[in-house]
């Protein structure tokens, strides 16, 4: 059984993002008209208002911008302490995730981390969760 996690915010566009994760594909919408990547998923390009977009595989690499460590339990699924991070992906969007295989004390501004997958499930079903750790050598 996959790991239970707090519920995802689901809509027709989020559904497609999470469907790709079932195949361990990390894809974001890229505007077919102007090429801007967007996150979170949605119906429209905020730059040119086009509603044409392609789910495009991204490199899964980003630089650490910030992090916070929960010292109090907010979710049953995430006992304290639990650290979350914000990365700036190579393709532009900022992406919230949590770090794996790296000590919180070793996190630093601009540190490069890359995509790992871990399993997850909620009432919408099973999926894989994109998390980030040190790039493999």
């Amino acid at each position: 059984m996959a790991t239970p996690r707090p519920i995802r915010s689901m809509d027709p566009y989020a559904e497609q993002f999470w469907a790709y994760t079932q195949k361990k594909e990390f894809r974001l919408q890229k505007c077919s008209d102007c090429g801007k990547f967007r996150w979170p998923p949605g119906p429209t390009c905020d730059k040119c208002l086009s509603d044409e977009a392609e789910w495009t595989a991204v490199a899964g690499r980003g630089k650490v911008l910030s992090w916070t460590t929960f010292r109090r339990k907010y979710f049953e699924e995430y006992p304290a302490p639990h650290t979350t991070i914000v990365l700036e992906l190579d393709e532009g969007p900022l992406f919230v995730s949590y770090p794996v295989d790296v000590e919180v004390a070793k996190l630093s501004e601009g540190m490069v981390l890359s995509l790992r997958w871990t399993d997850g499930q909620d009432k919408f079903g099973e999926y894989n969760l994109p998390v980030f750790g040190p790039p493999s050598a």
């Binding site: 996690r5 995802r8 915010s9 907010y74 979710f75 639990h82 979350t84 949590y98 909620d122």
Partner: peptide, 9 residues
């Protein structure tokens, strides 16, 4: 609430 699956709230 969007990042709840990663534990951010």
């Amino acid at each position: 609430f969007y990042y709840a699956p990663w534990g951010l709230t």
